[in-house]
Amino acid sequence: MGKKVKKQKSDEATKRWVSGMRDAFSEALYEIICEDERVILITSDTGAVCHDLIKANFPGRYINVGIAEQNMVGVAAGLAMTGYIVYIYAIVPFVTMRCYEQIRVDLCCMGHLPVTAVGVGAGFDYNTLGPTHHGTEDLSLMRTLPGMTVLSPSDSVMAAAFARISYELPGPKYIRLDRTGLPLIYDKDEADFSAGLTHLREGKDVCIVATGRMVKRALSVAEELAGKSVSVSVVDLYRLKPLNRELLLEILGKSARIATIEEHFITGGIGSLVAELMAENCVYLPLKRFGIPDDFCREYGPRDYLHSLYKLDLQSVARAVSDWVKG
């Protein structure tokens, strides 16, 4: 255990890693699996780039438990109790909600076990599969669990970094991934994700706190409104728990208004998180929360189309923010 083995990095997969968070993460995880024989991946019959590589090169360290997520969490806990560093992997609703009580008891009550739950399919990522496959409550549910680290990457550089960060952190972790590609926000060689959030852009009129895919949207909104004399600050809140309260409060205090945007139910997500933080700390600023309202999305079609239904598309958000600022 703990012995280093020779790296067997896949060039083919490396080419793909900038294109999507899922591939970037799984490629980085594969590197870790090559380095440390204590690392093991369990899925409930959900595929990703590195799975076949692990199966081929490290038999026994990739386990498909079948479509049985409750057992997946218990088995992960048991393996972690024997010294393994375990990743469990499935589509967001199934790796969070289907086995939520197992995560609560087996991972969080027994808080020392190094198990990372990886959910693929943030928000409407599975845009054609309907609400059963939408990831719209996961951040809320996971951030309420004591001891849980909650990570929500905004690009592939960060997703890859989170594979390494989750490997090094003790205790239970949740990582929320997008399948698809996004233009990169961070430079691979310079990125430091230890603070829990990044102040990507300064602005005095409104500070938009965003997470996941919506960080890019917030940056586009800021760009769009810069030409209309609205100054927008953007915060990438990529670690919801533990929250860097001090840094977030410091940034929030620099703008006249606060907005949040997330591809998640507003209830319980970062909109709730920021509201709680402001209320508790006497930050009496106007707050507007963009996200999915209290409703299941029964529409299908391109993800952008689903965003437009809830006014999360670039034009709708930009207009709403502009109208708000200009009063």
Partner: peptide
């Protein structure tokens, strides 16, 4: 193991048994 909520012990035990075999 932390138990009390039913249905948790056997999955954990299965993970322990598999871990023992792998190690």
């Amino acid at each position: 193991a932390f138990t009390g909520s039913l249905g948790h012990g056997l999955p954990i035990a299965a993970g322990l048994a598999l871990g023992a075999r792998l190690r």
